[in-house]
Design a protein around this nucleic acid. Structure first.
Lengths: 337, 337
DNA sequence: CTGAAAGCGCTAACAA
DNA sequence: TTGTTAGCGCTTTCAG
């Protein structure tokens, strides 16, 4: 049998109440008894059962993390950064991949609540905002990598609009005018698209291409869509891809048509995951400060849990352009004479 | 206040014992009362508190997963596959990244035990085998992606030796004789190295290069070590890298010296993660059946938990060579005349 | 400063 | 078939 608080009490000749108090440093205990109890705790190698503690109404020190897909490098890196901070603060993370599937999302939320997690963190991809607002009433909630305008929820977001704007502006500065966009239809990408469009308009650029949202944010779809653009009547000289995976697929597509990145076509990605250091050429990309996002969101969470802080915060992180080899000055137009 | 079993009991005019029985489908309950109770459960939107259930000695339906680093694509993909099966079986996963750090490992194990997880799964990288054996006495334990010879622990492993052998043999078949190896000093890589060596010996190959283990399994180290080999007096014509990240770094190094993969140097990786589809050329690699590993290990786990099966199993999965663009027939030797 | 006792929400004998 | 009751391991009044 595992050793319980009773064992400790008996072994040190005090009551369980006293033991409880020294463990939690609560109440007033005499130095002597305290020392004695601490000793026997050590001897017996006693560790309080957190389940029992939790049942008396205290923290479970578990928090749920809902992400679309743990196998996606961006989310894996994000989860890792949340995990690091969580562990520093004494929490464990229960990670659930939802695959953007509302039914799974509901199921996991339910399960997490039944397990009395101290809070739930939603990573981007979760679109049931009303559900979040509702949960927010009963449980500490935080949202990361996703803006959640005009709501009363702890949020650590990334300025997607600005990201789209910066990516596009970078290409425009390099002289590109025919810039295409690739992305899946989720909130962050709609924002990035707005940024893209504004950058284009601001520079009086009006490149026509048959934009359509893709269905999955993976290499294949990036390759497919970039290929489609490359074979259109008026192919782009640059592509903004809404994540590094799509960018990688785009590079592959360009190469497949016998063209070079960046000589013929420039590509910029999003996220600055490990992927960006694996492509050839290395990928110019809009960096999300993943480490920072994880830390901030866990800090908000623990603040709400431990200090019962009810003021919510919204932290917006600023995108940074990381220039690598996949973007380049546009080729001089061949002047037709 | 959350609704408890008492609320349900009161609302349906029965005792809490009865409610408990209909929830768990235990004991014998009259159809009528059963229906009645089920109805009020629905009305009140009652969900049993798993913490309380757990305290009475039943499952917590949480299982711990210890991996070296969630941000590493291989482990992220592995975690995802374990997670999928876990959720199918009704379990949640508490994921802990240990960074190969024994102190962290101990800390997490401790925490997980205190939280009464139903079991702990160790992914490769964990070297404290005696600790595992010890834990194995008190808790369902399983090991994945790591062989654990002559032990009484549930294991899903990958034949690393054979993997090293196959990778090397593939290159030898392509005519390579100067084959170098890159890897970190962990168990699986020591096995892969054995496989490499046996393949070399079997073919009377005795390529001398200054092998040394690297310190981290990442792109940078792959690039560094491959670069070192490439600039030695007798550079290799092929490289076996112990994971896809290292292989990617190797490809970069080769290119940096103005050579081509696969024309001048062939590279084979390990794991067949998403990385292998992002390099240029696409990476020939030894595939670990990640999906299958995750499923198997969770099945072993739940079997031990639910059926109290005490027979342990060892499942060994066979490596498969996935041929892509990074390996090629060796260049004909220039016959010096 | 210390301990007895009630209770957290649920399960499982054992009675009725 | 249903209900009573005693825990599970811990926290927390409230007396002493």
């Amino acid at each position: 049998m595992k050793t319980t608080i009773y064992d400790v009490a008996k072994a040190s000749g005090v009551s369980i109440a006293t033991v409880s108090k020294v463990i939690n440093n609560s109440g007033r205990i005499g130095e002597k008894t305290k020392k004695k109890v601490l000793e026997t705790i050590n001897e017996l190698n006693y560790h309080p059962n957190m389940i029992a503690t939790a049942l008396t109404g205290k923290s479970t020190f578990s928090i749920g993390l809902l992400i679309p897909d743990l196998a996606n490098p961006f989310f894996a890196e994000l989860a890792r950064s949340v995990e690091d901070r969580a562990h520093e603060l004494g929490y464990n993370l229960v990670i659930c991949s939802t695959d953007y599937n509302p039914a799974k999302e509901m199921k996991y939320i339910d399960l997490l609540k039944r397990k009395n997690v101290d809070g739930i963190i939603f990573a981007s991809g979760f679109e049931q905002l009303d559900k979040i607002e509702e949960l927010n009433e009963s449980l500490p909630i935080a949202v990361v990598a996703r803006d959640f305008p005009s709501s009363n929820v702890n949020t650590v977001s990334f300025d997607d609009y600005l990201g789209g704007f910066k990516a596009t502006s970078h290409l425009i500065e390099l002289g590109h005018e025919k810039i295409a966009l690739i992305g899946r239809d989720v909130w962050s990408n709609r924002e990035r698209k707005r940024g893209y469009e504004d950058a284009m308009h601001k520079n009086d650029l009006n490149y026509k291409f048959r934009f359509e949202y893709i269905e999955e944010s993976n290499v294949e779809w990036g390759k497919y869509m970039a290929g489609k653009y490359m074979t259109s009547e008026d192919p782009p000289t640059a592509i903004v891809a809404c994540n590094d995976l799509l960018a990688s697929g785009s590079i592959q597509a360009v190469k497949e048509y016998g063209l070079s990145v960046p000589d013929d076509v420039s590509v910029v990605g999003f996220d600055n995951t490990i992927i960006a250091t694996l492509t050839d050429p290395l990928l110019t990309t809009i960096a999300q400060p993943i480490k920072s996002m994880g830390k901030h969101v866990m800090d908000l969470m623990s603040n709400e849990i431990e200090n019962n802080v009810t003021d919510k915060s919204r932290i917006t992180l600023i995108p940074k352009l990381v220039t690598r080899g996949s973007t380049k000055q546009v080729k001089k137009r061949i002047v037709q004479s």
